[in-house]
Design a protein around this nucleic acid. Structure first.
Length: 257
DNA sequence: ATGTCATAAGATTTATGA
């Protein structure tokens, strides 16, 4: 099973790019983030015509997450991150597909840091850690994937010294990611490519893609039950070079059936 | 500080987020 994550940065503005990528990369399951569309404006018909069923949680202007599948029913488990009924952002959706629990997340950016947005990021991370730990106790195959908005280590950014005060690379954000690893989750990309320079995001500013000034912030965390099945992991970097593209590239893993 | 995109309100631009 090929599972992908893609922060589309507006699902409707990116629809031609999304459809072309679905056709060329043919993932079985897709997690999308930053739909930037209200619930009614999700392009369900175009995605169905591409061969995928979908569940999604939209929101006006910002955020929004979706799970697509072409390999079987999507059985929704929840569409918000548990733990704070006052958090109205559409940033998490979870479902079972083909016997695998798929958590699709769009973690808060958190800039500027420090400040209320960074506080929100850290509180979201605390809730996420509680939920992730509960998932591990189920001892089931689980993938937590999406835009984490965290640069895990200095190897995951073109110039780490420029990012030390940024919410994506602050010690608190890195520590929260390491805490997830310490719980028992496996960073799938690094499991298969421990030394390689791998980026998943390039800023729209200053020709960042042309200079390969990127960040690795889109991740796959696997529960122990899935690690033996991990076969491949890669970034569809070419998509970042297409016209009218997102600032993120799609990332995917392949699991043995 | 800058740069680029996207959205929304309501305007022929501005603000906000990323």
């Amino acid at each position: 099973m090929k599972i992908a994550t893609y922060n589309v940065n507006s699902v409707n503005a990116r629809l031609p790019v999304l459809l072309r990528w679905l056709q060329e990369s043919a993932p079985d399951v897709v997690c999308l983030q930053e739909l930037k569309a209200i619930q009614e404006n999700f392009p369900e018909e175009a995605i169905r015509n591409a061969g995928y069923t979908a569940i999604w949680h939209g929101q006006k202007s910002w955020n929004g997450v979706a799970i697509l599948s072409r390999v079987g029913n999507i059985t929704e488990r929840c569409r918000v991150l548990p733990g704070d009924p006052e958090d109205l952002h559409s940033r998490y959706i979870e479902a079972v597909v083909n016997g695998v629990i798929i958590g699709c997340l769009y973690l808060p950016n958190g800039n500027p840091a420090p400040g209320p947005k960074f506080d929100y990021k850290l509180s979201w991370l605390k809730r996420f850690a509680i939920h992730a730990k509960a998932l591990l106790t189920e001892e089931l195959p689980v993938v937590l994937t999406g835009d984490f908005n965290i640069i895990p280590t200095g190897k995951d950014v073109y110039k780490p010294e420029r990012w030390v005060d940024d919410a994506l690379f602050r010690p608190e954000s890195r520590a929260a990611f390491q805490e997830l690893i310490a719980q028992g989750w496996t960073d799938a990309i690094r499991q298969l490519h421990p030394e390689e320079t791998i980026y998943t995001y390039w800023d729209f500013f200053r020709n960042a893609f042309g200079r390969d000034a990127g960040l690795r912030i889109d991740h796959f965390l696997l529960s122990p039950q899935l690690v033996p099945q991990l076969q491949k992991a890669a970034v569809d970097k070419q998509v970042r070079g297409w016209e009218k593209t997102s600032d993120h590239a799609p990332v995917w893993i392949e699991l043995k059936d």
